[in-house]
Design a protein around this nucleic acid. Structure first.
Lengths: 202, 202
DNA sequence: GGCCAAACGGGACTGCTGTTCCATTAATGC
DNA sequence: GCATTAATGGAACAGCAGTCCCGTTTGGCC
């Protein structure tokens, strides 16, 4: 049932195989937007992608395999961090970046699907961990630069500050299910900054 | 397919009906610990509870209905907040309380299941929102008392501070899938406190 | 204690998910 | 270009989740 879904191990990654994968992942995202993860249907994905359902089952195994591959795909194409010249602007940019991602219909549906899939699926959990670790590492330098500029205390943990900015947004989105908007994003950035200035992240 | 799962609307809530519900919810939690939400099987739950599977389908409809009812049950029996005499101890107690809940095998499995169910199920999402709103309201007074004692700035938003303590724990648990331990809990409490003292929660 | 209807239980049934088999297509290496 | 074989597609098949029907049990009420 469980099987590797990454294209990496295939012997013939070019041409048809790559086209099939692109079409299937595209169709998967469409389905996620319409039906969510729990409504993700392998047959419909295959039909919408224009490939045989045998192919989908063989290469991805189950819905969790599809969203795991989708997440791996997103991990490749991560945008670089901002540089507004000051830590306040950089953290706000990070918060708005997260807000934009979870608010975007396609991306938001994908993130929620992977998070749902990751409860009880080791591969999906690993893909999720990989994605966010990359993202946090990519943004941590904005904190390091602020430390170098003297805006934040020496020894401030950049990755922890970045985590602190994202956490409230995801907490509301996933746990309390309260609305997530610009105000929440601004507060998240401001509070992480206040904690960092107070030396709570050293 | 979707149907109300709460016992509230039943005409005969006593005797057999209540026993059936208790047995089914107990069996559901057992299954969640063993198989997780995606492996939750209505037939096995019915068998383990010693009731007919028709009954389970009729009253709860689907796995999401089961975990939603379970969450509603947990919402009833919420523990009162701590009172250590100081805001630092109270917030730490809150963080350790959350840590204990998500670390406990039965509770943790239940929370993760409801969170997974809530992506794409309105009833589960509502139960989740209700549970956490109750919990946050129950703990907010520790902040209000601290403000009254002069430990925190006037106008500090108690509910927001409580949210800020929980958020990093759930963020790690659900999103980045990093380990959650006492150190993380202590940091979460300390950073929320630092932000509050700096006036970031007013 | 007895009546009535709500709630339950068992078993047959159905449709869909996921598998298997084999023929067909096309990517790779020469 | 041509041979090899990885990868795909279609169709038949199997198993189980979820539904339906109807007889049985039991809680609420007088």
């Amino acid at each position: 049932m469980e099987q590797q879904s990454r294209l990496a191990g295939t012997v013939r990654p070019g041409g048809r195989t790559a086209r099939t994968r692109a079409a299937v992942l595209e169709a998967t995202q469409d389905e996620l937007v319409e039906c969510g993860f729990h409504g993700l249907n392998m047959d419909r994905v295959a039909a919408k992608a224009g490939v045989g359902k045998t192919t989908v089952y063989r290469r991805w195994g189950d819905p969790a395999g599809l969203v795991t591959d989708l997440m791996a795909e997103l991990a490749e194409s991560s945008a670089p961090h901002a540089d507004t010249g000051g830590i306040e602007g950089d953290l706000l940019a990070n918060a708005l970046n997260v807000l934009g991602a979870v608010t975007d219909p396609r991306l938001g549906a994908t993130f929620q699907a992977v998070i749902a899939a990751a409860t009880g699926n080791e591969a999906a959990a690993a893909a999720l961990n990989d994605f966010y670790l990359r993202r946090i590492r990519a943004w941590a330098p904005v904190v390091d630069r602020a430390v170098a500029r003297g805006e934040l205390p020496e020894g401030t943990d950049g990755m922890e500050v970045i985590r602190a900015v994202s956490a409230p947004l995801y907490y509301r989105l996933l746990v309390t299910r309260e609305p997530v908007d610009e105000k929440v994003a601004e507060h998240a950035a401001a509070r992480a900054l206040a904690g960092a200035r107070a030396g709570a992240f050293t």
